[in-house]
Write a protein that binds this DNA or RNA. Structure first.
Lengths: 107, 107
DNA sequence: TTGACAGGCAACCATTTGGTTGCATAATAT
DNA sequence: ATATTATGCAACCAAATGGTTGCCTGTCAA
């Protein structure tokens, strides 16, 4: 599955924070993204590499600076392909859960 | 963040497969969920425990069997709180999801 | 009651992960 | 030309992760 990289990239809170920051202001450099985070620049570099290989961010060199741009497409893909699956079965699943919990209460 | 458990639980392909299976047929036992998977029952047990502590599934004992029920709420929560940030241009689809959830709550 | 079936617990293991430090390289400013 | 700034690379480390095996407990059926 190609979604796997996206899911795994999103699993880390630091990486979600980085996406958060890029979402607030797109096109930030590595050093800008490092500011205020409790980890070294190299750690951030690794996180960004993971986000990039999951296609969640795109990178553009500008002189010695490296600009990072968020790519919302994979997240939207997941939202549409995967999460909607759960919504489709939401009613049935919820009623099954409810029924199960009620039966549990009667024991 | 409380979403963290959900994100991390969803990061593993085996766990997503388990959710997939429960989505197809809810209320399966541990042994049923193990069938055809290339890992031991104990590995599946661990995955189910992670899914449970992320509140993605609920469990009900029935005699010596253990029934597993999917809980779509945390995933919908993420869709609402987090992923929606990244799909501003899909506001219409999102409001449809929100509306569906609200209708469900009123049952 | 005895055996088979469903699941739980704990120890152990290899690999992955998230992080570090130290040094190197490339572009810019003075 | 030189110092400074922005980033890259590689080795290393501890902890988390995903998995195994072995054995134990509880429940059902014959």
């Amino acid at each position: 599955m190609q979604d796997d990289d996206v899911f795994r990239a999103l699993a880390d809170a630091s990486r979600r924070t980085l996406l958060d920051r890029l979402q607030r202001r797109d096109g930030q450099t590595l050093n800008e993204l490092c500011a205020g985070l409790a980890m070294t620049r190299q750690a951030v570099t690794k996180h960004l590499a993971i986000l990039q290989s999951a296609n969640l961010i795109a990178v553009q060199r500008q002189g010695r600076a490296k600009l990072h741009f968020i790519n919302p497409v994979p997240i939207n893909d997941i939202a549409e392909r995967w999460i909607s699956k759960f919504q489709r079965h939401h009613l049935r699943a919820l009623s099954a859960l409810k029924k199960a919990l009620e039966e549990e209460d009667h024991e």
